[in-house]
Amino acid sequence: MNSFEPQSQDSLQRRFHQDNSTTQQPRDTTTPFIPKPASKNHNNSNSSSGAAGRSFQGFGLNVEDDLVSSVVPPVTVVLEGRSICQRISLDKHGSYQSLASALRQMFVDGADSTDDLDLSNAIPGHLIAYEDMENDLLLAGDLTWKDFVRVAKRIRILPVKGNTRQVKRNE
């Protein structure tokens, strides 16, 4: 029995090494960003056909900004009080106004498009916040759109009244 365990460990290490040789960074690297967006797109194409279309778009792009945005995964949108979440691809939007319009169509029934739409009035009685990589809850809109797409991991829609009762800081 003792003779088999090191062999399985060797096979694990060898498999990890094989993955390392296929242009993927090792798991123990400090930066979480994978510099090969093509492989990420390939992983996405396995899960759904919509992502396959996105992977083809990713291959054709030349600008590094677009390459970075093409590997941004969809983020979960949570409306307080609702048990079912929705997902949205931030890289398909170019501005906060576009995001506000999408959220309004998601959560407001019979919503008609208005010109003065922004994050503060996208969903009446609610404000748009997001969680970043440190699991802090921040108000959406302070950052530039590109920085917001980069750091937002989850969008949380909070009711305005009863604001002070919901303290959600992890400190």
């Binding site: 960003f33 108000l139 920085d147 002070t164 400190e171």
Partner: peptide, 29 residues
């Protein structure tokens, strides 16, 4: 993070920091 954005960020002279207040439900930047 990422390195590309870092160099561009230095060019733009942008320095975002988080602001939290005790009792507030969310943070600002």
């Amino acid at each position: 993070w990422p390195p590309v954005r870092s160099s561009r960020k230095n060019n733009n002279s942008v320095s975002y920091v988080k602001v939290s207040m005790d009792g507030a439900p969310y943070l600002r930047k």
